[in-house]
Structures are given as structure tokens and as C-alpha cells.
Amino acid sequence: MQLFDVAADAYVRFMGRFSGPLAEPFAEVGLVDVKPDAKVLDVGCGPGMLTSVLARRQGEANVIAVDPVEAFVEATAAAHPAAVVRRASAEALPFPDDTFGAALAQLVVHFMSDPAAGVGEMARVTAAGGRVSACVWDHAGGRGALSGFWGVVQRYDPTAAGERALPGSTAGDLTRLFEEVGLREVEETLVTIHLEVPTFEEWWQPFTLGVGPAGAYVDSLNQIERAGLMAAMREEYGDGPIEVHAGAWTATGLA
């Protein structure tokens, strides 16, 4: 998770503009048939975008959130004092079996060190009949929130890895993973978001904050290379406003 060992504000400025709008439709999927007073787990909560939606829908005291990054844990705990927020990885959740009515992981599976172990842990701590859900940007299909960025990068630098090969990023990946760990009645859909960034500068500046693979790539460039990439991005997108249409593969199943 070193790619995300950054200040909470940096993450919010970079990915929060996309993951915030994603949280509501993802929660709609992840809370289907979940009792309104059930305890729910937010796995890899980051600075708490999904946590906020779950707190509003389930009641803050029924929300438990975990993340391996201490800065994110502190930010989420400060924003949601009635919730339980702990530092932990998805692959080793510090909870007994059958604890939760639902477990959700937003934009996390593709960065788990062992996705099968992480989803298996989510299934373990979810009570029988409870719901386990995860979503991942459709990087492989070119519909991720950052697909446009990587498209420009790879035209100029074909060696750049991008995020297309991350686990869960292709249709059917999450379904196979869920079924492998024994989840039942698995369904996979594409959840979409749409947003508008007013200016090019507002869209570009968060890429310079070192967050995630995209931020790491920009950080790796020298001053001249970075200026060239910025110019290429401006040529691609113009001065703004910039419209973003993104989709995330979303799988849900029963424990």
C-alpha cells in the first residue's frame, strides 16, 4: 500500500473527486437486503468517502472501517467519531467470524497484496446470508476514471504500465474471485459516474501529489518530461471544463 501512504487530503484531492460520487451507487448495490441496523464493514476505507455514505444509511455506530494507512485511519475516525475505525489490512481482518451483515471494498481489491485472501477475509467476517461487495474501475475496458490519463501517457511512453492489468479490472474478474472464495449468488454490474472538473488546472494538479500509480508515474518524471506530459494532457483535454465518464465493475454475493 506504499502507493497510498500519503496525506489524507492528497488522496481526497486526487481520487476523492471520483470515489466520492462512486460511493453512493456502490452502497446501493452493497446494502441490498441488508438490515438497516446491521453492522457493516468498510474494507480499505481510505479517508472515508464510502464510510460517510454507510454512516448516513446504517447509522454511524453501526459502521466499522479499516485501512492499512494510519493517516487515513486518523482522518476517517475524526470525521466519524461514533464509528469504529482501525488500522488493518484486508488480508488480515481483526474480527471474529460472522460479525457483519455486509462487507464492502471500494476501489481496493486491485491493490490488495493477495486479492483472494482479502475477499476471503471479507466473506469470513460476514454472517451467513450477509452481503459481500467490491468494485474496481474498468481499467481494462478503458472506462476507468484514469483511463484518459493513461491513454495520453502511453501514446508518448509505451513502456508505462498503466493500470489495465490490475486484479478485478476486467469484466468477470471479480465474479471469478468471489466464486473462488465460496460466495453465492454472485452478480456483477458496471456502475457509472459522471462529473465535470471546471478547469484543466483543477483536473491536472492532483496528479502531481504522488497518489497511486498515476501519481507515482508523474513523480518519476524529470521537470522537462513532466512539462511535456502536462502540455500533452492540455492538448487532449483543453482548458476545461473537463467531463469525466467512468465505470467500475461491481460484484456482490452472499456469504
Rank of each mutant, 00 (worst) to 15 (best):
A92I: 10
A92S: 13
L93C: 06
L93W: 04
L93E: 12
F95Y: 10
P96K: 10
P96M: 08
P96L: 00
D97M: 05
D97K: 09
D98L: 11
D98P: 03
D98G: 11
D98Y: 10
T99N: 12
T99P: 07
T99E: 15
F100E: 04
F100H: 02
G101V: 10
G101Q: 09
A102N: 03
A102W: 03
A102H: 06
A102S: 05
A103H: 09
L104I: 08
L104H: 00
Q106A: 14
Q106L: 14
L107M: 15
L107P: 06
V108G: 00
V109Y: 01
V109P: 05
V109H: 07
H110P: 04
H110L: 13
F111H: 04
M112V: 04
S113N: 09
S113I: 06
S113P: 10
D114S: 04
D114V: 01
D114H: 00
P115D: 09
P115K: 09
A116H: 10
A116S: 13
A116P: 00
A117I: 02
A117L: 08
G118D: 01
G118V: 01
G118Q: 02
G120P: 03
G120E: 02
M122P: 01
R124N: 03
R124C: 09
R124K: 05
R124F: 01
R124E: 04
V125G: 01
V125N: 07
T126N: 04
T126D: 07
T126W: 03
A127P: 06
A128C: 11
G129T: 13
G129N: 10
G129L: 12
G129R: 11
G130K: 05
G130D: 05
R131E: 06
V132C: 12
V132G: 08
S133W: 04
A134M: 12
C135E: 13
W137G: 09
W137K: 08
W137F: 08
W137M: 05
H139S: 14
A140V: 07
A140C: 09
G141Q: 00
G142V: 10
R143D: 11
G144F: 02
G144Y: 02
A145N: 13
A145L: 15
A145D: 14
A145V: 15
L146N: 08
L146H: 11
